[in-house]
């Protein structure tokens, strides 16, 4: 593509009537690359081959296959491959059970009530840990984000603790809290607090100072500034933090439930491992995946609701 620097006033001789462009304008036709010819020698139209190419509207480029079909075809193919490998005996059941068998086992587990009750237990743990972690994480973030004293007191300690891998604290938590629900909820709480703290804190500190000044000039009190300017401005950061937190909550749940659990999905998995039941393990993994998807969906809906003022790029 050549965008030239030819002077616009050289255009009239360059644009014969046949070109279809308005005369005398500095349109595309007039701005040719090597065009500072003298007006005395106009170039005939048929001598100039610009090699025009059409710009197709995006609608004509779309394939006939609908989007949802394209998106589902990948996983379906994978599933098909898995079934074929299992049917031909390339994948033995003690390595990985076939999809058909997994579906049957899932049906059985739901029918005898063991899967729903395990899910209930696990969901309760995640919910408790998430709520506690959200309270601690956002509470500390508000403290250090809004007050300089809070920052001095809180931030350094949190940044220091953040670097300790929370999973490594499990043995300590078992000694402190025993083997009941408390250590499991505590580990999820710990895992959830940090990403929320970091993102809410960054969100608060990242609020446009021009808006704060505008709020001040409108006569907002300190609390009014926090309520109308700082907190709404920190909301996008908080949502990002929430999303991270949910991911970590599931991770922490898996860790917590594989140690000393007597109920929950993790317990189901540990039990299945002892009996070499790969089918049950896979069912549990699928349940984890679906719960994760559900959580993500909830955050997305929340974002759509709370951040509707933000025009976002949704892809093409």
């Amino acid at each position: 593509m050549s965008i030239s620097h030819a002077p616009p006033d050289s255009s009239p001789p360059d644009t014969p009537d046949a070109s279809g462009f308005a005369k005398g304008g500095n349109g595309v036709a007039s701005s040719r690359g090597d065009a500072p010819e003298s007006p005395a020698a106009p170039v005939p139209a048929h001598d100039v081959d610009l090699g025009l190419e059409p710009i197709r509207p995006s609608s004509s480029r779309r394939t006939r296959v609908p989007r949802w079909l394209r998106r589902t075809s990948g996983p379906v193919l994978l599933l098909l491959l898995w079934q074929i490998l299992s049917a031909t005996g390339a994948l033995t059941p003690d390595v990985l059970a076939s999809p058909g068998r997994i579906a049957r086992v899932a049906g059985d587990l739901i029918a005898d009530g063991s899967l729903p009750s395990a899910m209930g237990t696990s969901l309760r743990r995640v919910a408790a840990g998430l709520v506690l972690g959200a309270v601690v994480g956002t509470g500390l973030a508000l403290l250090s984000g809004l007050f300089r004293v809070g920052e001095d007191l809180v931030d350094a300690s949190v940044q220091m603790l953040r670097t300790v891998p929370f999973v490594g604290l499990i043995p300590l938590f078992i000694i402190w809290f025993g083997i009941g629900e408390a250590p499991k909820v505590a580990i999820i709480t710990l895992g959830v607090s940090f990403p929320l703290y970091l993102n809410v804190y960054a969100g608060i500190r990242g609020v446009d100072s021009q808006l704060i000044e505008a709020g001040e000039s409108l006569g907002l009190s300190r609390w009014g500034l926090v309520r109308h300017v700082v907190l709404p401005g920190a909301l996008p950061g908080a949502m990002t933090g929430l999303r991270y937190s949910l991911g970590i909550a599931w991770l922490a749940l898996v860790f917590a439930e594989q140690i000393n659990a007597d109920a929950g999905i993790g317990f189901l998995m540990v039990q299945a491992r002892d009996f070499l039941r790969t089918d049950v393990i896979v069912v549990c993994l699928i349940v984890y995946a679906f719960l994760g998807l559900l959580a993500d969906f909830i955050v997305r809906s929340l974002e759509r609701l709370l951040l509707q003022w933000r025009p976002t790029f949704t892809g093409r």
Binding site: Q210, L211, E213, G215, L218, H228, P232, W309
Partner: peptide, 16 residues
């Protein structure tokens, strides 16, 4: 203009 992007126009006007 320094309008609060999270408040609708009329709420921005009344802010403070």
């Amino acid at each position: 203009p320094r309008l609060m992007p999270w408040k609708r126009v009329w709420r921005n006007v009344l802010l403070g």
